[in-house]
Amino acid sequence: MKLAANLSMLFTEQPLLERFSAAKAAGFNAVEIQFPYVERIADIKTQLNIHDLKCVLINVPAGDLMEGGEGLASVPGKEAEFAAALVECLSYVTSLRIKRVNVLPGRCMDESKRELYLSTFKRNLDTAAQMFKPLGVTVTFEAINTFDMPGFLIHNVQQMLDVIEESDHDNIKMQFDIYHMARMEEGDVSAIISRLGNKIGHIQFADVPGRGEPGTGELDFKSIFYAIEYSSYEGWVGAEYKPTKYTEDTLRWKQFITSSIAMCS
């Protein structure tokens, strides 16, 4: 299994540019960063090169989303801002050789406008897919649970499948966040991954309900990692959780991967 450390959530005891070395020391060969735009491209590239790491995923800038706003990708009238966000993202993607870009749909707080927001999001997502396809980049989009982000436009697996079905771009896939989908879905996330692995462009994980490391909540990560390992999914798996103690002291979940593989032998 190809594991990546999410540097926006792990190793936060240190400044961002110092987290690369921490991730490498902890045994990761790849990282992902939610919003790397606070750091210069050259500085990130230096850290990747020094520590022989790949950056496998970043998000397109999302405007005011993380401060409680609607974001950019689905908001009518913000198409120009979203286009500018794509250009900024493109500069990081080309320089850092990133092959996955995630578009956060954002919020729609007025249910009567949902269809308008959804159609705006689909157009913007298609624009992103068209821009990045010549670079061999897969564009993902993420469903987020409405407990943590009320009003989030896309919040379950079926909605993601519907968007993919309606698009003509084959480089659009779902970003499957195990934490968010376990909170929203009625059913087993392992079964969903087994069934839909070829439609998933990136996987991230944290336990439920507290979003801590595996083993701190309700999810059976032996079965989940087994499902990932033996599904048709071939991408990276991002550790995107809130450590309950120093990050280096929360990595015992890696033994679940060994156990899950042993289940097949």
Rank of each mutant, 00 (worst) to 15 (best):
H169Q: 14
S112C: 04
V137P: 07
G151S: 09
L118W: 06
M160Q: 15
H155G: 10
K122E: 13
S119N: 12
D168L: 09
F132V: 09
D170C: 03
D168E: 14
D170P: 00
F176C: 03
Y179N: 03
N124R: 03
S167Q: 08
M174T: 06
L125A: 03
D126L: 03
K133H: 12
P134W: 11
T146D: 09
G136K: 09
I144H: 04
F152H: 15
S167K: 07
Y179K: 01
L153R: 10
L116R: 11
P134T: 10
L118S: 03
I144P: 01
T146L: 10
E166Q: 15
T127M: 14
D110Y: 01
M109F: 10
L135P: 06
P134Y: 12
T127W: 07
I164Q: 11
M149T: 15
G151F: 07
E142Q: 08
R123T: 13
F176R: 01
M149R: 13
Q175G: 00
E111Y: 04
T140Y: 01
V163Q: 06
L125Y: 05
K113N: 09
Q175V: 00
V137H: 07
Y179D: 03
E166R: 14
Q158V: 13
K173P: 02
S112R: 14
F121Y: 09
L161G: 12
E115N: 12
S119A: 13
P150N: 11
V163R: 05
V139K: 05
P134R: 09
P150K: 11
K113L: 15
F176P: 02
K173T: 03
M174N: 01
T146R: 15
V139F: 07
I172W: 02
T127K: 12
D177C: 05
I164T: 04
M149I: 15
F152D: 06
T138I: 15
K133G: 01
A128S: 10
E165L: 10
H155Y: 14
C108K: 04
A129C: 15
A143L: 11
A128L: 04
Q159C: 05
T127A: 13
D126K: 09
M109C: 00
T140C: 15
I164N: 02
L118N: 01
N156L: 04
E166K: 14
R123Y: 10
T140V: 12
T127V: 11
A143F: 10
Q175M: 07
A143S: 14
D168A: 14
I144E: 02
V163I: 15
H155E: 06
L153E: 12
F121D: 00
E111R: 08
H169D: 11
S112V: 12
P134L: 12
G151E: 08
A143T: 09
N145H: 09
E111I: 11
P150C: 11
F121R: 00
